[in-house]
Design a protein around this nucleic acid. Structure first.
Lengths: 195, 195
DNA sequence: GAGCTTCAACCGACCAGTTGGTAGAGCTTT
DNA sequence: AAAGCTCTACCAACTGGTCGGTTGAAGCTC
């Protein structure tokens, strides 16, 4: 059982990290929003690296839960990929979490503590792993094509989605910019084009 | 005519920004590397926003020069796209400039000064503009396909390249990771597949 | 159940170091 | 002498982090 304050700190830290990355948020930003002193945050997360790593660990855990649920509820590989794209379309449209923390922190890697880098790498591995499996399944059933192998196809889809997030942010968090790029990337994988 | 110190400051600032972004470098980092006092930097670039904007402005100017030269030297649209990908492959392989400053700063947009954001947006517009023209040319000559229009095709290629940079950084600045993704993205545009 | 201990949670005050930025004086170059 | 450039010294604000101490609830003993 975790304390409520502990969870609130993670919530606020996550929100700040999505919009500012690792280097542009501070304990002083979090404390008043949670309604505690700075020292309280240090009590739960001794160092900033601990806090960021904990945010990422929880983020990855939630992702795994989402993926498990999705795989249970949806069996069609094409629909599974659509759900992945759709998830981010919703996030950007609703303006909460308009960016993947993993992708954001990836760009800051050279200035990140090692523990945080490990979580970022882990997140990319998680993502590539389950997408690769979905694509492989689709290829086996003749629904998807992956000319250069399912691993490259998965990496490419991820790259397109991350690049689309970047483009959307440049365009002022415009969901249509994200959709145009991401949907086209998914379309490349289909044997029967839908657009 | 600009002073040598002025140019040196821009060089060091650019290098630091490529690896750390906007928020994780300081005047104190630059000064000793250039061999001047902090105040000297402030003399040339009154605020940090001025410095970052100047770095981006010079970066864009250099890019425009590169593009002009490329368009003059290479006429085949396919070869032009290959040169774009090849440019970044070289950058990542040689380990100088292993990331596009524009893309890096784009992820930090919510915490960036307005003048810097404008330069970032300008860079994306530059990039999308000339790639769109190249793709349009290729489509007209039957060398390239752009199902959803040349603008979306250009945005998609940019997104793939930026996402590939991210993936390469996660993999420890691995040039082969970048190449696999970026080359596949370019391949999608060809009418005659080469891989 | 009164009295005692233990312990996680929390706090204000404080720390040294860094941040972006300034003031003013001393050089050169024109 | 004016203009441009660079310097040392300084500033207030903020950084991540520590300190000693308070609170309150749970666990224990008699």
């Amino acid at each position: 059982m975790v304390s409520e304050t502990y969870e609130n700190i993670l919530d606020v830290a996550e929100r700040l990290m999505v919009s500012r990355g690792y280097n542009a948020f501070s304990y002083a930003d979090i404390a008043p929003e949670v309604g505690v002193g700075k020292a309280t945050i240090h009590h739960h997360f001794p160092t900033k690296a601990d806090l960021a790593a904990a945010v990422l660990a929880r983020y990855r855990k939630n992702n795994r839960r989402h993926v498990e649920r999705l795989l249970a509820a949806v069996t069609d590989p094409v629909a599974r990929l659509q759900a992945y794209i759709g998830f981010w379309e919703d996030c950007i449209r609703r303006q909460d979490m308009p960016f993947c923390i993993g992708a954001l922190l990836a760009s800051e890697i050279p200035s990140l503590p090692e523990t945080v880098v490990q979580q970022v790498r882990g997140h990319f591995a998680d993502l590539a792993g389950w997408l690769r499996a979905v694509i492989e399944d689709g290829v086996a059933n003749g629904l998807l094509t992956a000319e250069h192998g399912s691993a490259v196809a998965a990496d490419s889809l991820i790259a397109s989605v991350h690049g689309a997030m970047l483009a959307a942010r440049v365009a002022g968090s415009d969901p249509s910019v994200f959709s145009a790029i991401a949907r086209r990337a998914m379309d490349q994988l289909l044997t029967t084009k839908t657009m």
